[in-house]
Write a protein that binds this DNA or RNA. Structure first.
Lengths: 264, 264
DNA sequence: CGAACATTTGAAGCGCGTCAAAGCCGGTGG
DNA sequence: CCACCGGCTTTGACGCGCTTCAAATGTTCG
């Protein structure tokens, strides 16, 4: 449940390796690039703000961060979560300004990978370039699913889908055993991510608890029956494009998630 | 207002040229690749369905298409529009299955660019590769904005923002003179894109008309005062990342759109 | 002219928001 | 050890924005 031996860097390499078959040289190059100082952001502080001109890519080593956008009048939408091993979009390198902010939800340890390093890497190691493309396209797919989540699902389905997504993503980086995980979000955070109010999130959580789909006390979320929550939320995990992960480390929930959906 | 001399291919080249400075050789290579047969999809037919295994990238030559996702029970969310000159995500090349469908809203003329052609192009012409990265990141930015649109804005703001986005995008490809454009969407389409019902879209359109922000008769939408609609909708065009377009072809609305927002 | 589809309108209901106050919990300092 | 404080969660009452259902009115095109 802690990050311990998950060095963040290792997690990145493992993940990229799932997107494209990396050679030992590729991995060594990544390894070398990741000899970077670890930076710290305190909970509830912004790592980078909308409109800023970034010069690096952020790689989360431990803790949770979120991407969010703010309307003029203060309304705030969380458009994605960054979990350990996640990196922010290459957005930073290519576009001139941030179109969203990144904020720390918990204390966050992260690395700043300078743009030049990434450009060199993709130039000299085409497989790494391909893996980055893959990752980017998965981000895009996830963002489309969030759009659908907000546009079509009701409160219970929205919240349930979000909790399912987090379960699978945390599992892929070893931060969930498949049944429960540490959820460091406040109900206000959940509200901002689902487009609901914190009051309604509270009531919806109670509803999910009452129907036995989740239990949540303190910061530990438990999903006793993943398939049940998935069905109640109309959650279809295909959009995470994690098929190849499942093939390799196939046990329990993760496989079931997609198997349920292979039938059509 | 028609597509006439806008050959779709030319539009693609012009657009990519805005993302990275292409050499004459780059442009020639693109030109050559675009000697492909033009395919036709009839209005209301799918071009490719969710779950399919694609082998090409689609480039819209004329007409409107949309990307959409469907929940098990039939609810449908339009997650993006593809206008002339737009291409679908490289999704198709890298990921194994479509996580969304692409459907023709009007009759659509399009080209299928085989994956190999694009791989060769990016390998031999790094600037084109960079331009494609850019385009992809802009797609991602737009998708984040749609997420925010659905999560935080009310009906009028949602619809207004969408109409603003379409105005700017159509203008960039020469399909709007800045004040009005052809809107081939039904109210049901607008509903599916904004996460509202068609009944409520109808009422919201009337409200926009009553307040003089738009006029819409037949399929022609007119925005007499873009700044007013923009303000009423809390529309902030930065997310389209079209700064460089404005710098080059600066006149009227397009410039104003961003200028309004440069002040902060 | 008629069928299929899009727009418009009305009436009624519900999901979620708003407002406000009351617990609750961890942390801090006296 | 208790008093206190700020932030999070929980609860209740009420209201509104949007949905639902149903039917009428265009509109387009064989």
């Amino acid at each position: 449940m802690h990050d311990g031996h998950h060095s963040g860097g290792m997690m990145l390499i493992r993940r990229l390796g799932n997107y494209a078959r990396l050679t030992p040289e590729d991995e060594a190059a990544l390894q070398q690039m990741l000899a970077l100082p670890i930076r710290l952001a305190h909970a509830r502080r912004d790592i980078i703000a909308e409109g800023a001109v970034p010069r690096a890519v952020f790689l989360i080593v431990s803790g949770w961060a979120c991407q969010f956008k703010t309307l003029e009048d203060g309304r705030r939408q969380i458009v994605g979560f960054l979990l350990p091993g996640d990196s922010c979009d290459l957005n930073n390198l290519v576009l001139r300004r941030m179109d969203h902010s990144i904020g720390a939800l918990t204390d966050v340890r992260y690395m700043e990978i300078p743009g030049g390093a990434i450009q060199r890497l993709t130039r000299d190691h085409p497989r790494i370039g391909k893996a980055l493309w893959w990752q980017m396209l998965v981000h895009l797919s996830v963002q489309r699913e969030w759009t659908t989540n907000l546009g079509q699902r009701n409160a219970m389905e929205r919240l349930g889908s979000l909790l399912c997504e987090l379960a699978l993503r945390l599992r892929d980086v070893g931060l969930s055993n498949g049944e429960c995980y540490d959820l460091p979000l406040t109900q206000t955070d959940l509200a901002d991510a689902t487009g609901l109010t914190s009051v309604h999130i509270n009531r919806t959580l109670q509803q999910l608890r009452a129907s036995g789909l989740i239990s949540l006390s303190g910061r530990v979320l438990r999903i006793p029956n993943f398939a049940a929550l998935q069905e109640a939320s109309l959650f279809a995990p295909d959009y995470l494009h994690r098929a190849q992960l499942e093939a390799r480390q196939s046990h329990g929930m993760a496989g079931a998630g997609a198997a349920d959906h292979a039938e059509r």
